[in-house]
Amino acid sequence: KRRTSFTPQALEILNAHFEKNTHPSGQEMTEIAEKLNYDREVVRVWFCNKRQALK
């Protein structure tokens, strides 16, 4: 499976959402994914990886 390359704009939006809520609901992740035109699973993994990076 290929790595997803996030655009700077997408990272800005993802980081803004992460600052508000580090554990978004499934519905929220779906909405973010649709807004950014990414697969929901990609957004889920991004949040998971971001949380791990802060440990």
Rank of each mutant, 00 (worst) to 15 (best):
L36W: 02
N49V: 08
P24W: 04
S25K: 12
K35A: 10
D39A: 10
I32G: 02
V43M: 00
I32Q: 04
L14R: 00
Q52F: 07
F47S: 01
H17A: 12
H17P: 00
K20I: 05
Q27H: 15
A33V: 05
N37A: 11
E12T: 12
E41H: 05
L54E: 08
R51A: 09
L54F: 06
T7H: 06
P8Y: 02
R2A: 14
R51S: 07
W46C: 00
K20H: 05
E41G: 07
F18N: 00
P8L: 11
S5R: 09
R3C: 05
T22C: 14
V45E: 07
D39S: 11
R40I: 12
N21E: 12
A10S: 05
N21V: 04
A16Y: 08
S25H: 15
I13Q: 08
G26Q: 03
K20D: 05
H23S: 14
R44H: 06
G26N: 11
Q52P: 06
K20N: 06
R2I: 11
N37T: 05
R51M: 04
P8S: 14
T30S: 06
T30R: 09
K50Q: 09
T4C: 11
L54P: 14
V42P: 13
Q9Y: 10
K20S: 10
C48F: 03
A33N: 01
N37D: 11
K35C: 07
E28F: 07
I32P: 01
L54W: 04
T30A: 11
R40G: 14
H23C: 13
L11G: 03
E12F: 15
A16I: 07
R2G: 11
T30M: 15
T30C: 07
Q9T: 09
V43H: 00
Y38G: 06
K35W: 04
P8V: 13
Q27K: 15
H23R: 13
V43C: 05
K20Q: 07
N37F: 04
I32S: 00
L36E: 01
E12P: 02
R2P: 09
N21F: 02
T4R: 06
R40M: 13
Q9G: 11
Q27T: 13
N49R: 08
R51H: 04
T7G: 12
F47Q: 01
K20Y: 06
K50L: 01
A10N: 09
K50D: 00
E28D: 11
L14A: 00
K1Q: 15
F18P: 00
K20V: 08
I13R: 08
H23D: 13
W46R: 01
L36Y: 02
G26M: 10
W46D: 03
H17M: 12
I13T: 12
S5H: 05
P8N: 10
E41Q: 06
V45S: 15
V45W: 11
Q52I: 14
E41C: 09
C48I: 03
K50P: 00
E19A: 14
E12K: 02
Q27R: 13
T7M: 03
P8Q: 04
N21W: 02
V45H: 08
H17K: 14
E41N: 07
D39M: 03
S25P: 04
F47R: 00
A16L: 11
F47V: 01
Y38N: 03
N37M: 15
V43S: 00
N15K: 08
F18E: 01
T30Q: 09
N15Q: 05
F47N: 00
V45M: 14
I13Y: 13
K1L: 03
A33E: 01
K35P: 01
P24E: 00
D39R: 08
K1E: 02
Q27M: 03
T4P: 08
T22S: 13
V43W: 00
D39G: 08
R40K: 13
L54V: 09
V45A: 12
F18K: 00
E41T: 10
A16H: 14
R44D: 07
L14Y: 01
L11E: 12
N49T: 06
G26C: 12
P24I: 06
V42A: 14
E19G: 08
L11V: 14
V42N: 10
R3M: 13
E12A: 03
C48L: 15
A53V: 06
W46V: 00
R2Q: 13
F18V: 02
K1A: 07
R44E: 13
E41K: 13
R44V: 14
L14P: 01
D39L: 02
K20E: 12
C48Y: 11
T4I: 04
Q9L: 05
K50W: 01
Q52W: 05
F47I: 01
H23P: 00
R44G: 10
K20C: 05
E41D: 09
N15D: 09
R40V: 12
C48V: 15
R44L: 06
E31K: 04
E34W: 06
E34R: 05
A53W: 10
T22D: 11
F18T: 00
L14D: 00
N21Y: 04
L54T: 06
S25D: 07
V42Y: 09
V42R: 07
F6S: 03
T4M: 08
A10C: 08
N37R: 11
E28K: 10
H23E: 15
F6I: 15
I32D: 00
A16T: 09
T7N: 04
Q9K: 11
Q9W: 07
F6W: 12
I13F: 09
F6V: 13
F6E: 07
A33L: 02
Q9R: 15
N49L: 05
R51P: 02
A53K: 07
L11C: 03
C48N: 15
N21P: 00
S5C: 11
E31L: 05
F6H: 05
R44T: 13
A33C: 06
